[in-house]
Design a protein around this nucleic acid. Sequence first.
DNA 1: CGTTACCCCTGGAGGC
DNA 2: TGCCTCCAGGGGTAAC
Length: 273
Amino acid sequence: MPELPEVEVSRLGLLPHLLQEPVVDCLARRASLRLPMPQDLAARLRGHRLAAIIRRGKYLLFHWPTANGWLLLHLGMSGSLRLAPPGTPAGRHDHFDLCFPRAVLRFKDPRRFGLALWLEGERPETHPLLEHLGVEPLSEAFTANYLAALLKGRMMPIKPLLMNARLIVGVGNIYAAESLFRAAVSPLRPAAGLRPQEIRKLAPAIRETLQEAIEAGGSSVRDYVHSDGGAGSFQLRCAVYGRAGQTCPRCANPIRQIRQSGRSSFYCPQCQK
DNA sequence: CGTTACCCCTGGAGGC
DNA sequence: TGCCTCCAGGGGTAAC
């Protein structure tokens, strides 16, 4: 569910409410999600003020320098964060609460593919889950030349390659499809076969697709909820994702759905070569 | 090393 | 209404 834009929108939504607020309590309602959840965070964090929330790929990192560590969250396929008034009863899939004086940060994740981990120390980027992550597509480092270097020698189709977090972070199934449509490149093309001109088009297409989704407040197909509890924005309409059989917004021919690396891909065979 | 298959889990949609 | 099958935004690991 959440790709980079949704995670970033959650982060931006939480910041003004939680920054510099002291932790009042912390509650893990189950032993583990994808990995065991920290059960001792209340004792560790109580009274400490949240100093920062940063994003790396689809991960969120909450920093408490005075407690010498970071809380690492990943929303998996179905995770969401919201702020609720203190005392709000928890639902069936509300697995984790971080309580502040005026709000409870609540982590809901029906499928439980997400995770919450405590990372001790000052260098979370050295954690095994983070140390092999690829380039941030919204950073200045992500240029057409950099993308060209990533594609070099790789026979894998371009679409699953874009979703490989060891190469580029944050691009999931929706935004890989939408970026390729914007760049007019077929998801089936072997990565190494893209021409320089196409790579020069694809790199900004990825950046713009993600940036516009962030500005639209994150897209939502099914159950995304804004971090402030409001309904997820549907402002960003997909051109191809989830639109099998419907008309291409550019040429009006039908959108085709195929399967790549176990995931659905959507594209316009007319516009994307 | 590159690439694929499978697994974790719940819930919604659609067929019968 | 119920029961069944399939599908879903992620990503780690094992296997080829």
